[in-house]
Design a protein around this nucleic acid. Sequence first.
DNA 1: AGGCTTGCTTAAGGTTGGCTTAAGGCCGCA
DNA 2: TGCGGCCTTAAGCCAACCTTAAGCAAGCCT
Lengths: 218, 218
Amino acid sequence: MFLLLVEDDLNLGNALSRLLKQHYRVHWVRNLEAAKNHFASAEYDAILLDLGLPDGDGVEWLQSLRTAGCNTPVLIVSARDALDDRVKGLDTGADDYLVKPFEPEELLARIRVLLRRKSGRAQPRLSAGNLAYEAESRQFYLDDKPITLPPKEHQILAVLMQAGEKPVSRERLMQQLYGLGDGVDSNTLEVHIYGLRKMLGKDRIETVRGFGYRLSGA
Amino acid sequence: MFLLLVEDDLNLGNALSRLLKQHYRVHWVRNLEAAKNHFASAEYDAILLDLGLPDGDGVEWLQSLRTAGCNTPVLIVSARDALDDRVKGLDTGADDYLVKPFEPEELLARIRVLLRRKSGRAQPRLSAGNLAYEAESRQFYLDDKPITLPPKEHQILAVLMQAGEKPVSRERLMQQLYGLGDGVDSNTLEVHIYGLRKMLGKDRIETVRGFGYRLSGA
DNA sequence: AGGCTTGCTTAAGGTTGGCTTAAGGCCGCA
DNA sequence: TGCGGCCTTAAGCCAACCTTAAGCAAGCCT
């Protein structure tokens, strides 16, 4: 984890820098100019931004970052405690706003919140060979191209992908399609599987005779 | 946007509820029990959580939510101002911690931060192709020309834009329009969609059969 | 091998989800 | 009180989707 600390006050900067270094890698800069340079040349996981800087306003920089599409988490740390300042800072794109003086522990906790988001946000994306599934967006990809499937086939494939390489029983699949309601006595499942195979390629779904089906990774 | 407000104090709850309703759809509940029920039956975009509740501790509920893998943004709003409480709240999984009493404007700003992040860093201005939406002014633009939509269509389109390219389920949309009230058995949604398409162009809203709708970027 | 079972492949209805209209009711506003 | 938006209901229609059914291929037994 790598933080950029932008703080012009020598004492506070020193203290913060030392505090943060117990937990993260930190670059400390004392003006906007330096902040911009550092930011351009490294990838930070979060930025701690003071507002009253010698060579410009931190909020304006933040503004430009956001406009440029950068969404690195930013925590504003400022002595400006007016409501207006806080609201403006947050609305400009800051993720948090901490008013000086603050307790070190709280700063650390709030940094943890920002970093947690960043890492925990990874979209759960299942994949098997040239196939992938993004649960969040309900989207399948085949060779990285999004594909759409009819509802039933969609359900079936989702279950299979969830199971990874493990075989899934017919019952399980039927249940997925029709709920617990007594088993429909028909070959629908097979027909859907056929449809899937036609879409994905013949060998992506193996049949496990007498049991069910499984996805083959290769 | 849909918020769950968990606050047992009658006066404060009322005031907050009114405040928030100027900007979002809000459910206000007064204890954990009700919170759990509501949470199970609806999809909220964020939760405002008081800690001192009559039937248990809000932090514990938060804990269990996070353990269960839910990552709905949570803003703790509490009278407990001890450092320990704040750190514990944040470390348990809260995204922000606001100490009572607070300024309404700040609460709103912090809520905006949470919601902004949720939608993959939705700027104040969302856009998709020739379509744009300015959340602040509740204004849509088509080819950069401001357009006005009837209330229901406005809501639908707003939800779709928040979701970006992801499909949104019918249920989610119906909920947006009518709240939890048991499913209205009708085709209103489809009629509204039809209206939208007539306004925006036929292909801007794709239907995901058996599921819902999604905005198409191109 | 021969018979038996399980699963594959097709094409033809049947069903349903969603689209499109038009008409009626509600509400706010002049 | 009438007018104009807007929302809902209802009905007909189309296409996508699901199921059925029947014949065929491939495993699996004795």
